[in-house]
Design a protein around this nucleic acid. Structure first.
Lengths: 253, 253
DNA sequence: CGTATCTTTGATATAAGTCAACAGTGGTGG
DNA sequence: CCACCACTGTTGACTTATATCAAAGATACG
């Protein structure tokens, strides 16, 4: 399965005030002092290779990250190696909040592509709560958003058929990717293998392959460049019976 | 399936300072001012009938609740009525945080037994963040804990076999119930039907029944008084390959 | 009692898993 | 430059887990 530890810290490049993500319409405006405070907390940037493990279950990481660019996924393993992917991470998402708040990590995170991460010290989290209630509230908001996504994923894995699940998953990822500007060429390209999809949907690799083929036959997706190209996101949503993300603007930390 | 709306507000009975839950060893000590503040926020108590809907998907509830006594569950529905139970709620758990933070509820909550709830105003949430950073942090902690439980549930539904899932579920609920003192008679009694279990595990009712029977044959559980009696929690954990909850003390809001 | 809600069971159907083999791809080292 | 290897995707044959259907017992309840 995975994965070598390929990291390299790079010197700081983007001050938060000129963060390329912050200008996207999905993210709410921050007050000057909030932004300055965040900027002060930022410790640097971390470049991560594709396939590298960012965080590992059982560890007590001293860091908290925000994805600047690239894709990753969160997962848990059963004792015998069966893997369940819990969610995907893309630009603007926080990595490691659970571990920061509660201590030990209970899941692992692996990069799906080369990534650039903003690094924060775990210890500074409390400082946010003391000095910037608005930002503290934002962090709770972010945790609630993750919970909401997990609710949806659990509904899908528990109650949808294989093809509905696959359609939901692609539509879900594509919807999220779109709002953070990951559709440069107009159609979104998700850098995952069919094994990842299988481990997300709770299906076997072979059955996943046959299911994906059906989506391709229906002209909803294509498989190219070692990943999934999204052709008809509305068709996917309809097939899955999924309403889509009901999100307005959100905070970026 | 469900369920009538049976609520009745009762006049206030327990001031937070004499909350019967707070003295349990699972809950961390609160400072006097924290406790006073919480007590001030508490608006009253709400008695809910078994089977009643506490919160409904799509609504904008003005309230946030803490379970004083009784059991409930969170769930989501697909358009055609398929139901997925996401998690269970028992004394000490918060109800409706997601909705309070993000606005609209994206799941429903139904009582499994008669319940008593502490009622808080949604609007006062921000006040907590402004005046009590420690409590604000606790709320994020609680949200992270819920996320963690969902991670485990998703792992289970996605990757465990039917009997492993059932064993995990019972062990999981029983472990949580034990630490909040729900084992008066020593052995824990979970007030659910097999339909609830089916909708939690993502299985059909018939298959769930046959699976539960296997657990009974193995002397791990019994079915009595319209609910599940937990006989051998260690045996269940072993069958599921589950390590158990790794929780220390937690906040009670 | 009579009715509704749960649980149980057997027979059958279907979705998904497993096994096995092969084809395309890209990388690496001789 | 080629041979080899690892990884990914594809397919068909077969097995198994789980779903569906149908009916009958239990059990609680008014």
């Amino acid at each position: 399965m995975p994965s070598q530890t390929g990291r390299s810290s790079s010197s700081r490049q983007y001050p938060c005030e000129r963060c390329p993500l912050r200008s996207l319409p999905v993210f709410r405006e921050f007050e000057k002092p909030e932004l300055a405070f965040i900027s002060k907390l930022k410790k640097g940037e971390l470049a991560v290779d594709k396939g590298a493990t960012v965080l590992v279950e059982g560890s007590h990481s001293a860091h908290l990250y925000t994805v600047l660019s690239g894709w990753a996924f969160r997962y848990k393993l059963l004792q015998d190696g069966r893997r369940q992917i819990l969610n995907y991470l893309m630009p603007g998402d926080l990595i490691g909040l659970q571990g920061s708040v509660m201590g030990e990590m209970q899941h692992s995170v692996e990069a799906l592509s080369p990534m650039l991460l903003c690094v924060f010290e775990r210890d500074n989290l409390l400082e946010i709560y003391r000095n910037h209630p608005g930002l503290a509230y934002d962090i709770t908001w972010i945790a609630s958003r993750e919970e909401r996504m997990l609710d949806e994923n659990l509904l899908s894995v528990g109650r949808r058929s294989a093809i509905e699940r696959a359609a939901y998953l692609v539509a879900f990822i594509a919807s999220r990717a779109k709002v953070v500007g990951l559709n440069g060429t107009q159609s979104i390209q998700i850098p995952i293998t069919q094994q990842h999809i299988a481990d997300t949907l709770g299906l076997s690799l072979v059955h996943t392959n046959k299911t994906i083929r059906k989506l391709m036959d229906r002209q909803l997706i294509v498989w190219r460049d070692g990943g999934c190209g999204v052709v008809d996101i509305e068709g996917l949503k309809q097939l899955a019976g999924w309403e889509g993300l009901a999100e307005g603007r959100r905070p970026l930390i």
